[in-house]
Design a protein around this nucleic acid. Structure first.
Lengths: 209, 209, 209, 209
DNA sequence: CATGAATGAGCTTTCATTCAT
DNA sequence: TATGAATGAAAGCTCATTCAT
């Protein structure tokens, strides 16, 4: 490679970097590395290499390794939260909002296999401290789910005396278990197609009419 | 040795091991150590000390550390499976069987705080391989749940077209999420009291009548 | 460039540097940072920040970090040397000159706590190379001490057959040990008051008359 | 090497090890490694290799690296202390005791070049915490020196009004400076021969009679 | 002259597992 | 069977120095 081609190569690489600030670059690299190597094999050096930066550069943007992992969760979770906020703002029934939530939850993970592996399998191997951090991030999401449920009760769509915490745990626990199974089965079947049935089960339960 | 004789040899050795008091001693010690120190602080040497044996002795009964952990899960899961088998044999409706399953699941973990911490929080930090192993153990339990669901459909108690896999994931995911939340909240409230409501939600869903 | 022209070039560059305010700024910043944070916590970035310059600027004035530290020692040592030169020029006995030297040595460090910490404790943590450099700087000072001793012998004030090197090591070793103890005791007592006794001990020894 | 010769080789190595318990083995290895590589290049792995043990074995005998270094100082210092205790017990004048102390101090370091390098140059590069530890160890030694001085005053051998702390600092500072210079000059001259002159200087001072 | 973002080499310590007794 | 001393691989983080701007 002569020094001209090096120069242009440099420009391309640089503009890629500039368009994706290093912070995002590293977070995205972490998702890929964790998904492909597993949580315990996701060394900082691997993440750095994947991000195209030096090991030390990581520490200009993150306090420590745990900080990277929490950031991964926070950054990606914000996709769910933002979508859910839009759904909440829509002028539709609570039942429809719940449906859209399930559908959104499934779609985001369906469309990003790496992310699905990371959130459903890998990040759960983190230690208790990190898991508490992750739970804090989750709280925002679950608070929005609670709002759907509360509004549904208010509008008479959902069972009047329903325990919101239990209902939330049923909705989230169900979605989570279904997605984890799907990931552990190597994402063989079409997750999206399950949404209507899941929604129906949650709304009307298992009892025959 | 062909694979048949290997299989029988395996069965004999396994049953011998499990009858030996030290095997159980070590498994029980592992539960205590993991519950009190957390998964990542549960070194083999700590388990050995708690069991009152030398480090090396562990390896006379277990192939490696992962083998201890899988054994913990298998031994303890058998309590759930045995109870559930009794429930299945009872002459009651499928709905009642489901209720008893939930009640049993909650009760076992409610009555053994160490076990609850280990199964809901600590063992989930294990790596993918171990979690696949654990899932295999779980399968027996979930197969029994599937039988309740299939019988319920057959007898017209549960929705005819219901997807059994989804329903199973809803039931298990809901129970699991509820128990995990309870453990993470330091087991502050009475888990047992939730069983009727959980059962009602799973049966009739959230929709107002 | 032959070694003569190199030598003069060196002199010019050196004198240019030392007149530049930033050079002194950085040396003074280094003293403060080392005294307050300790040798091993005195990162180049901290010194730069304390001096109010960018990290990179340091390298316009110093070859590397070691060069800063040697410069600190050289700059500060020159105070001792200059004072000692004045003392040597005074028209007093050698014994009096020795007294004034001790008194000066104590006074300079007594009046600059930061400097005392840096020279007695922190700079001694440097590696062998740097300590050899520091010793070179010290040589000028010790050479002046040797002159006091030689003159004293010549004038019949000091013991005729006295080994000058040993005597120098006794004088310097004694002063150094006393000051280091004083610094390690957090400079609790009055160093200056010790000068007469130290002088007396060095002159007449411990033996009872 | 056939397995017989391996066996005998093994016996020899083992008996060497057994005669020198691992603790001492490691301390001695540390002295050699520090002397030959310098304090900052004395990695735990090098010490382990020199001691003929695995890295991990170090940590069966020492809390951490600092613990090795403190132990080096403590173990070696005890030679000085034990010798000095014998000297104190001798039925000779205080002046003679002082002489023997100097002679002993010089001899121990003169006879172990590695140790001389380690105590005079390398260990002084340790951080403040370690140096405080080292100072604690030194205190025992200096306390014995103080006893010689106090007894000398009592018996009218040493100057009546003499400040013991100052005198101790003169004696130790002088010895220390002389030895350090000798080490920095690559131990070129005969340290032992200096003892009488040093003693004379300390006793009678520099002043001409 | 001055900047400061980026670099990347380097090392202590833990702990699952082995194996001579 | 049981022991427990010994092993040795493996990784997060710091910071002196550079160099494009």
């Amino acid at each position: 490679m002569n020094h001209h081609s090096y120069f242009f190569f440099y420009l391309v690489v640089e503009s890629l970097k500039r368009n994706k600030p290093k912070y995002k670059q590293i977070v995205d690299a972490a998702v890929v590395v964790i998904a492909e190597n597993g949580y315990h094999q996701a060394q900082v050096s691997k993440i750095a290499k994947q991000a195209g930066v030096a090991d030390g550069t990581i520490y200009l943007y993150f306090k420590n390794k745990e900080d990277i992992l929490v950031s991964v969760f926070r950054e990606k979770m914000s996709i769910f939260v933002e979508n859910l906020q839009k759904i909440l703002g829509a002028d539709v029934s609570s039942e429809e909002k719940l449906y859209r939530m399930i559908e959104n939850h499934f779609r985001v993970l369906h469309s990003d296999h790496h992310l699905a592996i990371v959130t459903q399998l890998e990040l759960r191997q983190s230690n208790k401290d990190l898991r508490h951090e992750i739970n804090n991030v989750l709280k925002d999401y679950l608070a929005l789910l609670d709002r759907i449920l509360a509004e549904g009760i208010e509008q008479g769509e959902f069972e009047k005396g329903m325990d919101i915490r239990l209902a939330r745990q049923m909705v989230f626990g169900t979605m989570d278990e279904i997605i984890t199974s799907w990931v552990m089965n190597d994402q063989k079947y079409d997750l999206m197609k399950l949404a209507p049935n899941v929604h129906r089960l949650l709304m009307k339960g298992m009892k025959a009419d």
